[in-house]
Write a protein that binds this DNA or RNA. Structure first.
Length: 286
DNA sequence: CCGTTAACCTGAGAGC
DNA sequence: TGCTCTCAGGTTAACG
């Protein structure tokens, strides 16, 4: 499901409900996510109060007292559902797909006094991990590159990092140790806006192209956040609203459609780069 | 060290 | 209805 903008929307959506709430109970129905959920997770978070909710890269971070943390990664298909306790039953007031909670793949349920939070993930590429200290948390993130929206991801950084890179620029943008937060949708959109062919080798990029990547990475992602993220498969925020950035895709999932750049007669093509779809206009992106 | 590929999973949709 | 094939917003172990 989520790249940085979608996780940011999840964070904003969920924060409103769970901030300063105490976890009453935890039910883990399936530990076999990308990594096995640690055996004692239930006891580690039960009866603890959430003092902060944040996002780092594509991760949701739940902060507890005494510098303890739970991180959630959503993989390709992970979603959170907030279900309000209503008399004898629960009703869905949350985001994603159907009005009601999916029947299958609800792997983790976190109970609060007045509602429950359900983690659903059909493909099980997501995961949960608990950290006992800030130090441990930082260690987990030590190999990640600067966040795409942070000031650390700037012209100097990108220039220096690209110097001897033989990988193509699209794979570099998807490489979280190079820059973190970008996924396949936004990599394609950023490269279109920057007028760069996704196959172009990193070290061959011109200074102007590097400048464009910096500029449009931030522009595209910020706009996606403003639009509530992209709703490819019915991604919704916690109020049940769809994100709308997919309506503004210029290349992603637009194979065989006309290039949207003014006066361009090109057609959007889909090619495969490292087993993943790349969308581009051959005329605009050299 | 670097870059590429296959693998981890399930479900939706297309084509026959 | 059902089979087979392709594809999906992510990451990483294993290989050359």
């Amino acid at each position: 499901m989520p790249e940085l903008p979608e996780v940011e929307i999840v964070k904003q959506s969920v924060e409103r409900s769970i901030l300063f709430q105490k976890i009453n109970d935890v039910l883990i129905k399936n530990r076999k996510l990308r990594f096995k959920i640690q055996n004692n997770l239930k006891n580690l978070i039960k009866n603890k109060k959430i003092i902060k909710v944040s996002r780092k890269f594509k991760y949701l971070i739940i902060h507890f007292e005494k510098e303890e943390f739970l991180i959630i990664h959503f993989g390709m298909s992970g979603t959170l559902h907030l279900l309000k306790k209503n008399k004898n039953d629960y009703t869905n007031l949350s985001f994603y797909s159907s009005r009601s909670l999916p029947k299958k793949h609800n792997h983790v349920i976190i109970f609060f006094p007045k509602f429950k939070l359900v983690y659903n993930d059909p493909r099980r590429f997501g995961f949960f991990k608990f950290f006992f200290s800030k130090k441990e948390l930082n260690f987990f993130f030590k190999n990640y590159g600067p966040e795409v929206l942070s000031s650390k991801f700037d012209l100097n950084y990108l220039k220096r990092k690209l110097k001897n890179k033989k990988k193509n620029i699209k794979n570099l943008l998807l490489d979280q140790t190079f820059v973190s937060g970008i996924g396949n949708i936004y990599a394609n959109e950023i490269l279109f806006c920057s007028k760069i062919n996704p196959k172009k080798i990193g070290k061959k990029l011109k200074i102007n192209e590097i400048r464009n990547i910096i500029k449009f990475s931030k522009k595209v992602l910020n706009k996606a956040i403003k639009r509530g993220g992209s709703s490819i498969k019915n991604f919704k925020n916690i109020k049940g609203n769809l994100g709308t950035f997919q309506k503004e895709f210029k290349v992603y999932e637009r194979e065989n459609k006309n290039c949207l750049k003014k006066n361009c007669r090109g057609v959007i093509r889909r090619i495969i780069i490292s087993n993943r779809s790349a969308f581009l206009c051959n005329y605009c992106q050299k």
